[in-house]
Design a binder for these strands. Sequence first.
DNA 1: GTCATCTGCAAGTCGATGCTTGCACAAATG
DNA 2: CATTTGTGCAAGCATCGACTTGCAGATGAC
Lengths: 115, 115
Amino acid sequence: MTAQSDAAGEVLAALADPTRRLILDTLAKHGEATGTTLANELPVTRQAIVQHLSVLDRVGLVASRKDGRERWYAVRPRQLLDTARWMNQVAAQWNARLTTIKRLAEGVDGEFPGR
Amino acid sequence: MTAQSDAAGEVLAALADPTRRLILDTLAKHGEATGTTLANELPVTRQAIVQHLSVLDRVGLVASRKDGRERWYAVRPRQLLDTARWMNQVAAQWNARLTTIKRLAEGVDGEFPGR
DNA sequence: GTCATCTGCAAGTCGATGCTTGCACAAATG
DNA sequence: CATTTGTGCAAGCATCGACTTGCAGATGAC
């Protein structure tokens, strides 16, 4: 119920890094790119980029294709959509629980602090 | 366009930690809980839990209320929903870009590797 | 064949952070 | 008032991960 190889968690961890999000952005902008291409316009080394791409590939956020001596990467939306769906489900659970609590505390008009 | 105080990134980073997700789960299950309550049923110290709750509060995933000498925490779905929406938008952008590319590469029937 | 370029592997550095222990303070109970 | 219980602050440790540098191998160009 909670753990099912935890795909969502992996994707979240991958997306948590700002550089990785930047790489994904750039990649999506170009459609396809190689490690060296990305390194040319991003403020990090090619090695760093390749390592990030390795992480992103492991969780299925990018895919790679080898052409000659070049390796081309592209973005894959599916995992992102799945994770978004997961988040919506969790949020729905929270909402359900909160409304239940509210119903139990019937009559109490005090809402929760607005942070 | 990319940076707008980056609320999504903050939430992602907060959700990336497994212990933090466990805390959120437990919290949602109970509706409300205190640091010591959570520490009683989770395999970490109260201090660790409070620190995590501090992070979660900073990004708006939980809110706290003080009653006497006890501080009660509860989950807040809004940030989660916002982040899910953000993910959907990004995924939509990726999809749009990918279909454009595909259209440009008209005639080519080769799909992308299935990882 | 020779040279330039792109990739892949490895090791090392450095900062961030998850978790702990220790203690002081505040509030409820007797 | 004394005791107990819950919270808040601080410092220390230890691990993880982001990034770099260095080099070897593979592929294309001249």
